[in-house]
């Protein structure tokens, strides 16, 4: 009798699993689900129980993706990720003694520096000491050089 219940329990669990396909653009990204490697995209027939998962995608020269995903009960699920490219951007200025900050978290003081930036629109803030003296949006869509000049009012 105990074996019978165990068999029913196992069958119930196996029937409840959802088959998943993970795709990415571009393909060949490394996939980890809850820290466990699953190979390169596209990946077919990953069988998971409904629930919360953390999916990580990494690919050289592209921004990594960390995605929390609540898998619903279904027959089949397809996840398609769009990876953003990383471009090298050279920041150059002749201004002296200024602090620079990107996206409220990346700081430097050098007058010339190479940055590896995710494609998209970034926010640059320039500080003289503690005071904000300039703020700009920078659109990154290719490797580029930024020549920064502080224009005083």
């Amino acid at each position: 009798m105990r074996n019978k219940f165990f068999l029913i329990f196992i069958l119930t669990i196996s029937f409840a699993k959802v088959s998943i396909r993970i795709e990415s653009n571009p393909h060949s990204a490394h996939v980890k689900i809850d820290g466990e490697p699953f190979g390169l995209t596209p990946i077919e027939n990953i069988s998971l129980l409904p629930g919360l998962y953390k999916i990580d995608l990494t690919l050289e020269e592209f921004a990594p993706i960390h995605y929390s995903f609540d898998l619903q009960t279904a027959g089949f699920a397809v996840l398609r990720f769009q990876l953003n490219r990383i471009y090298t951007v050279t920041f150059n200025t002749q201004e002296k003694g200024l602090n620079y900050e990107l996206d409220d978290q990346y700081n430097w003081i050098e007058e010339k520096i190479n940055l590896k930036m995710e494609e998209g629109i970034h926010n640059l803030k320039v500080f003289d000491g503690d005071s904000l003296v300039d703020e700009k949006e920078i659109w990154i869509n290719k490797p580029s050089k930024i020549f920064y000049e502080l224009i005083s009012n």
């Binding site: 921004a63 990594p64 993706i65 960390h66 995605y67 995903f69 619903q72 279904a74 027959g75 089949f76 699920a77 397809v78 996840l79 398609r80 990720f81 769009q82 953003n84 990383i86 990107l102 996206d103 990346y106 430097w108 520096i113 190479n114 940055l115 590896k116 930036m117 995710e118 998209g120 629109i121 970034h122």
Partner: peptide, 19 residues
């Protein structure tokens, strides 16, 4: 060279399709 990747930290572009 700046030691970190400058990431946007925006929500990832992902489409989820259930069948």
């Amino acid at each position: 060279e700046y030691p970190e990747l400058i990431l946007l930290n925006s929500n990832p572009v992902v489409s989820v399709r259930y069948e």
